[in-house]
Each structure stands twice: as C-alpha cells, then as structure tokens.
Design a protein around this nucleic acid. Structure first.
Lengths: 363, 363
DNA sequence: TTGTATGCGTTATCAT
DNA sequence: ATGATAACGCATACAA
C-alpha cells in the first residue's frame, strides 16, 4: 500500500449544489484523491507522451470523467509557457475578404491545437493600442492582417513573440509574411485592358494611408506612365459599396466624361461602381466602361455581376500563415520568411478584354 | 531604510541579447527590484482601485516602463478566477450575417475589457466537440450562435459558466438568450404576400436539422394552412448562394410551374434564387415571381437586388448579447433572461406587395 | 512507473 | 500605505 500525498485543499462539497457561491473548481488533486494516486500521476495522464501504466491511466481517467475534470489552461500555460492561443489582428470585417480569412485561420490553427484570440480593429491605425493587451494574454504568436511600424515589429522581436504578417507590405522589415503578388497581377490586368484599347483609366483606391493601397497605386501609375498613357484619375474609398459608387461619380466629374476603364482596390467597391454605372448613370458595362475589382470574394461571382477581377487565394494564404506561425513557434527560428502567392486573373464580364471591332475603329 | 523581500530569481541578463534561448520573462519581482519596493506594491500599482502612494506609483511605473513589464494574464486569472476572455461559438462564416455579428460582439466586449476567443465550427452539430476546449480555457462566459442540447446547456450550469445564446430557439430551456422575433415578422411578410394575391408558395429553408429553420418553417406552414392556401413546396439549402439557385430549380421541378412567391431562409439564398430566376430561367421578378429573404445583410441592399427582406438588428442584438453576458458574469445572477428584438420589414423590389391590377383579374 | 517537492507569476490576506 | 506570505492549479526534475 503506497502512501499518497494528500495536499488536497478542503473538500469541494461544503454545500452540495444549493448556493451558487463561486464553487471551488475541480483540480488534479481532487482527481488524484478519487483515483488513489498522486497529483503528478494525474498530470501525466493528460500529457500525450508521458509514461503511465495502463492501470493507473484507467483509474485516473475514470475518476476525471466522474468529476468532470478538465485541466486548467491558465495554470498549465504558466509553467509550460504555452498558452495555445494565437492573437489575430484584423480590421473591420465589413470587408468580406476578412471573414473568409479568419475562418480559414481559425480552422487551420485549431488543427494544431491553437485557438484564435480575436483583436478586431475599427481602423488599422489602432494597432498600437491593442498591442499591450496582446502581451498580457501571453499568446504563442500573432497573425496580423494590418500594417505594423518598424517600432512595432521591433517590439515583437524584443518580446520574442512570433509574428506573421498577412497580406501587407513589409517594406523590407525582417518579418515573416504571407502575401499575394500585387505587381505581376496588377500589371497583367492593366496590360490586358490597355491591349484591348483602353486609354483613360480611373482608379478607386483604398484609404490614402493604407499601405496596401499605396503599393497597388504606384504599380498602376508607373505602368500607365511607362506606356505613355494619360495619367489615371485617382480617388480614395473606404473599401465599401458606397465608396465604389461615389468614386465613379467623382471620377466622371473630375474627368468631364466617362473613362475607358476603372480599376478598383477591392471587389466590393467595384460592385458599387458597377451598380452605380448601370442603374444610376446608365452607363453600359463593359460596352462603354470596363470595371475591374480585386480579391474575387464570393459576390463577385454572382450572376448579376460576374466581375472581372483578380483572385487572391485567401484560403491558401490563410493556411500558409497559420502553418508558418506554428512553425516559428515550434522551432523558434528567427530567420524571417516571406511567401508570395500569385493572383489568378478572372475574366468575368465587366471588362472588355478584346480590341473594339474594326467597324468602330473605322468610324 | 526598509528591508525588501528579495526573492527574485537570478538576473535575467545572463546573455544580453545574443542567444534566442527562451529568455526569462520580466516579472513583477524584477520591477519591484528596480523600483526598490516589494512585489506586492508592484501588483497594487496595476490594480485600479488599490491604495498606493503617489511616490511609490511613480517609481513603480517608471521601472515597469523601462523594463517593458506587462502583467501576466495567465497568472492573474489563476488567482482572480477571471480570464477576461469570452468564448464565441459561430458556424461557418460564409453566412455573411456572422461576420457582422462577430465584429459587433468583439467591439462591445472590448469595451468591457474582455476579448473574444473564437470557436468557429464547420457544422453546427460540432458544438459538442469544442466544449471541452472551452472549459480548458477558463473563459468568463460564452456567447453561442449555435443550438445547444439540453445536456449541453446543463453542463454550462453545472460548471457555472455564464452562457448567452444568440439568435437560436431555446425550446423553453432556462438560458439567457437574445433573439429576433421570427413569429411576428414572418407572419407579417406572409400576410402581405397573401394579401397581394400570392397563393402558391415555395420555401427555401436552411438545413433540415437547423433549429432556426425548423421554427421559421413551422410558422409559415401553419399560417398558410390557417389561410386555406395550398401547402408550400419546401426545399432545404445550406444558406449559401448556390443553394438558392438549386432551390428554385427544385421547386419549379416539383411544382411543374413557377410558384407565386418564394420565401428564403436568408438573404444569400434569396439572392441566389433571384439571380437564377432572372439570368438562368428568365423569370420576371417580381412580375411572375416574388422573392423574399431574411436578415437584410449588406448585399441585399445593393442596387442590382434591392431585396424584399426582414431586417434583423444584428448590431443591437450582438451588443445586447455582450451586455447581457457581462451582466451575468458580474452579478452571477442565475435567473435566465430572454430578450427578443423585432424585425423590420424591408419592402425592397423583389416582391409584388400590391394586388395585381384589375385588368389581370378580369382576364 | 510513481510520488515528492518545487516553481510558474500573480493577487489576496494579514500584519505592521 | 506597505511588506511578508499563502494560495491559484498545474508540470517537471528528481528520487525512489
């Protein structure tokens, strides 16, 4: 007969079930007592590769089940330094693109036993304000779908918190990141539009301070300039439907006429632009005006739109972000990695992609 | 000169910055040492209403800042029994309705100092599988946008984990819940359609096992029966776009003709149905067929659709859920509360809401 | 394989 | 107002 450590605190059944006064939690000590083993034996039973005899494990598991015992993650993380939580920073989810990413991230992380602690921002500039919260929670890592300053990136390094930046420019910062190639896909789109005879472009972009926008804008502007075309009319939106409509009106106003093509910073603005053209300004798309989006979110594929756009492989990118983060967490490898995915051109039916018929040219 | 407890572990600067070997964390002991106070003094400085002299607080805060000290939430929650985390259970976010709710929940909870730990499910039936995970994380409460069995609800009670069910039927279970009145709004919609002369209805519903669907379906079926109308043709979808299109095809097939009206379980299916009618089957909506949705998600308001639908006040409901949960957490009041919000009828332009012109009747 | 003892980083209680 | 000390619930090194 072995002697058992009985450091267990006073019984948890002082008042059976009557008073809802902050009942004591069931701990590994309670299970140990019930199973007639030590607390460490209980602990081992809940650790995957631990050495426990079959008999002990059975007794412990039975006792645990009968007591509804579940290990306390807070206590565990205190000693293991692993919280099994990953912070995900995302801006306002009105964007339609984000929910899909979030969902994929959550699923993929769950496969690795990690849960998403969500930090959703109203504006991307608020990142700084939630960082202290993130440090508090001792997350194992962070996936940021937001732009970070050099100082902020440095703080991650200093605190040794693994970070993966999703779909943002990183300006040469030493950061793990997953992105979609803007350069190639944007150029492809513009080249095809130019080849089809479009000359005067409009751009409905994201907010002026958005890094993502800045990059795409530069690409478009410099390409049009290379090709010797007139400069595009540029307006800024907020990535929402009404921004697209307002953008079109503004471009037409500034230009004094309807441009040949409008390239939008995301699909939802493209759809707003498209609807405004067709239903409000009665412009024929793609007859008089070509409209292109970016992302290939679900509604872009709806029959009423069939939008010409560039598909970002959101699912793949999210999974890659989750996998990369988990890798960094496990290996503690500080060498930053950047994975770039290609965008797929979706022809759709809102842009004229062939040169106008000869008859029109002759006329 | 006071004597200071110097229980601080060995210095954290064994190797300045070179080796990334799991650096010791900065703790309140380090801050205490640097500030020349006891560890408890440091702890008090980070507790809102604690009694600390101005001088001590200054010294501590300065030391904390210089060391980048942030209290460890895991350790704190161990003793306070508050993790400041709330689990949110949501199904696949393809639904368009959920991202908006999640965003609102996250924002509202953040105002109360709580963060969302996300549990996103592929199918609602998987709830049971993630409950053990939830217990592990010691969340302060749970907001479930999913149906729970009586046993599951009972487990929340047994473990004394505050629960708020968002937008699900609760079949008389003693649960805190926030919901939107299906009864009144559905009846209003159907009554208006019937008053406008619609006789043969089709219903494109959610999955057969979805509680939400079951309730709405019953309401519609019994109302039509009360009114002496032919039974509606009922098909099930998955709340996505293609389900709406497939639903329409199936209803037309079963009925051998186009029904007078189709009522859908959500907007996305209604939009799928609408697009299929207009672009594939070339049915005039609302001339030959009326289509109605549910939710009033953003795309329902887009100019190409202008969907007839019922608006759920998602924002308000989410905020109410967050507030109710926080109230329960603070008060530990076990008396369940159910708050019902009304739905707003959105006329839109996809349903004929007036009786057909007299000429048509005479013909 | 199993038990003992210790520590993770904090808050709370209790003296002073 | 402040410091010493005891939890909180678990994992782990070490001894047996």
């Amino acid at each position: 007969m072995k002697k058992i450590q009985l450091a267990s605190p006073p019984s948890s059944v002082d008042h059976p079930d009557t008073h809802p006064a902050l009942a004591r939690r069931v701990t590994s000590y309670d299970v140990a007592l019930a199973a007639g083993v030590s607390q460490s034996a209980v602990s081992r039973c809940f650790k995957p590769g631990a050495s426990v005899s079959k008999d002990t494990r059975n007794r412990v598991m039975k006792a645990a089940a009968s007591l509804d015992y579940i290990p306390n993650a807070a206590a565990r993380s205190l000693i293991t330094r692993r919280s099994n939580m990953v912070a995900v920073i995302m801006t306002n989810m009105a964007n339609l693109y984000y929910p899909e990413a979030l969902s994929a991230l959550s699923l993929q992380l769950a496969r690795q036993g990690k849960r998403v602690l969500l930090f959703s921002l109203e504006r991307e500039a608020d990142v700084g304000r939630i960082l202290p919260d993130i440090w508090q929670y001792q997350v194992d890592g962070v996936i940021a779908a937001a732009s970070l300053s050099n100082e902020q990136v440095a703080e991650f390094a200093r605190r040794q918190v693994p970070l993966v930046v999703l779909n943002r420019a990183t300006r040469g910062q030493p950061v793990n990141s997953i992105a979609c190639d803007q350069q190639d896909s944007s150029r492809m789109l513009l080249n095809r539009l130019v080849a089809a005879g479009h000359r005067q472009f409009g751009i409905i972009d994201g907010p002026a301070d958005s890094q993502l926008s800045i990059e795409r804008r530069q690409i478009a502007i410099s390409l049009l300039s290379e090709l010797g075309l007139p400069p595009a009319v540029l307006v800024h939106g907020r990535y929402d439907y009404s921004s697209g409509a307002a953008g079109l009106r503004e471009i037409v106003k500034q230009l004094g006429k309807v441009p040949d093509a409008i390239v939008c910073g995301n699909d939802v603005m493209a759809i707003g632009c498209l609807d405004c053209a067709r239903h409000e300004l009665h412009i024929d798309v793609p007859g008089e005006l070509s409209v292109a989006g970016f992302d290939a979110v679900e509604p872009s594929n709806w029959l009423s739109y069939n939008l010409t756009t560039l598909r970002q492989p959101i699912q793949k990118m999210s999974q890659a972000a989750a996998d990369l983060l988990c890798h960094v967490i496990d290996s503690r490898d500080p060498a930053p990695e950047r994975r770039i995915f290609g965008a797929q051109f979706i022809e759709g039916a809102t842009a004229r992609l062939l040169p106008p018929p000869v008859a029109a040219l002759a006329a």
